[in-house]
Amino acid sequence: MSALAQVGYVARRSVLRTARQPANIIFPFVFPTALLAVTSAGLSPATKIPGFPSDSFLAFFLAFPFIQGALFATMNAGTDLARDIQSGFLNRLALTPLRGGALIVGQLGGIAVLAFIQNCYYLAVGLIVGVRLESGIVGGIVLIILATGVAIAFGALGAFFALRTGSGEAVQGLFPLLFVGLFLSSMNLPRNLIEADWFRTVATFNPISYLIEGLRSLIITGWDWEALGLAFGFAGLLAAAAMVLANWALQLRLTRT
């Protein structure tokens, strides 16, 4: 059986599992939308700060749910895999001719499907409440592709953590860390408008800032190739590194001969 077919079977199972856990569906849809509503309304006066790049904070902040949705993907991929390890299901899979790489890629395939649906939803919410994409329809497609890529990258990170620790709790513990990473970025204000020097420095070194800025550029700027290049670059790097790490962790976990 081809590796691609194996990926397909694992991905199908991953999608089924996700679809059957209402919390996995509801949280990625409800929480980012709620935070988008509250924060964009609460910080709407921030558009009056001199130099603010948009006259709509909602448009400026619309990149946020895509990244938060990706963090949920991390949790889903990680906790599902950790549950497989804890329940012994991974051993069952290990006794089949399933290739290790196919397991990870299949798992992420399921995440990609969910992330794609999530991202279409976030974009639809934005469009419904009046956001207009400066990059047009093609920009919208690129936005979905980039956001789904980011979700895959974070999902691989979650899979790595799950395989390394074998514990759902440990994966859950990763979420606050990533959440902190999200908040210590240019999520709320453009980096040049962050007043506190230390915060601006942290945000500059924080790769999440570039992911957000790439997504944001498609919404409020148009085609900013530098922002897009950095976002795709960081997403690709993160995905590649996390995949290599996850594969390595799987080899350690599956000591099968």
Partner: peptide
């Protein structure tokens, strides 16, 4: 694992909001 979330989250929110959004006090009004 019981103590740290209750301890770290407020500090984190304080840092993220007070540090990251300090320019907000420049908003007219």
């Amino acid at each position: 694992s019981l103590f740290l979330p209750g301890m770290i989250f407020p500090l984190f929110f304080f840092t993220a909001f007070a540090g990251g959004l300090s320019r907000v006090d420049n908003i007219p009004g």
